[in-house]
Amino acid sequence: MFSNRTFNLIVPIFSVLLGFLVGAIVMLAFGYSPIEGYRALWNGAFGNAYYLGETIRQSIPLMLTGLAIAFAFRSGLFNIGAEGQVFVGWLAAVWLGIVVDLPTIIHLPLAILVAGLAGALWALIPGLLKATRGVHEVVVTIMMNYIALHLSNHIIRAYLLESGSRTSRINESASLRTEGLTTLFGGSQIHWGFIIAFIAAIIMWFLLERTTYGYELRAVGYNKHAAHYAGINVKRNIIMAMMISGLFAGLAGAMEGLGTFGSMHTHASFSNLGFDGIAVALLGANTAIGSVISAFLFGALKVGSLSMPPISGVPSELVEIIIAVIIFFVASSYMIRWIVLRFKKEEK
């Protein structure tokens, strides 16, 4: 028999392989060569320093939203609202980056912190409603996503618009990008945010696995009633878990605002960072290290997909299908467990 730990490894690996298999079948069905397609994907993600830089850049916010959703999952909450928290954090970071003028050593941490706080506050509302009134967090966070989307668009248009549809650039002192790093990676948009993402991952791991507080959170996630019976303050834990989750998502927004774009533009629809974060967290089995690895995989897929149409002719949306199939199989892990156990039985 397999232990749970082995299953936690088998399910994601199986799902990723199945995802790529489905992708290959789709390519074959439409008369493309899967080998050509996947080669273009690989080269587009890791082919040279520029592409590698882009892949890392794309992975940074995904890591943070993945951590956000994984953290909430561990405490028994589904934060589908990372999307909105990203927007709020993004806006807060850009706003602070524009209106304040301070030396980098204060300005940058301040802007990042404020973004995190904005995300945490945005997540406080669903957390409070869940804790005090028992309202399901999924629907509230979906609604909060739309409110964040439209409000941030409105604020950009009304107060921060520079030209066209974006705000003016943030002051250099709040930027996460440096000349040296950009040249090292062949002029890509990479920025120092990866350090922040790693720190966040370590904090999450430490908090969950090494502190009493994390123990309480996980207890609430496993069984609310048992946790309550054991004297754990369930309500406080729900609110805190939601806020920490929102904080991570807010940081992801800061990465976009202070790193990748250096500004914020109005959005017609979502950035999808939050929804992809769900995929990241699920594939990473809701652990910190797992989220980091799977964010890197999805980042590579997303960046690599851009090279697919010009080189192999395959529409880049193929990658969206692959990612969706991966989540589908991870979510249906029951089936993979069943198949694996079936094989085990027959061997005996």
């Binding site: 589904f78 995929a279 299908i321 199939v325 989540i327 589908f328 991870v330 979510a331």
Partner: peptide
């Protein structure tokens, strides 16, 4: 909920593809 999210992604992916 997760399966629903996957449905949303697959539909959009397949549609645009």
């Amino acid at each position: 909920v997760v399966s629903g999210v996957a449905i949303n992604m697959i539909a959009l992916g397949v549609g645009i593809f």
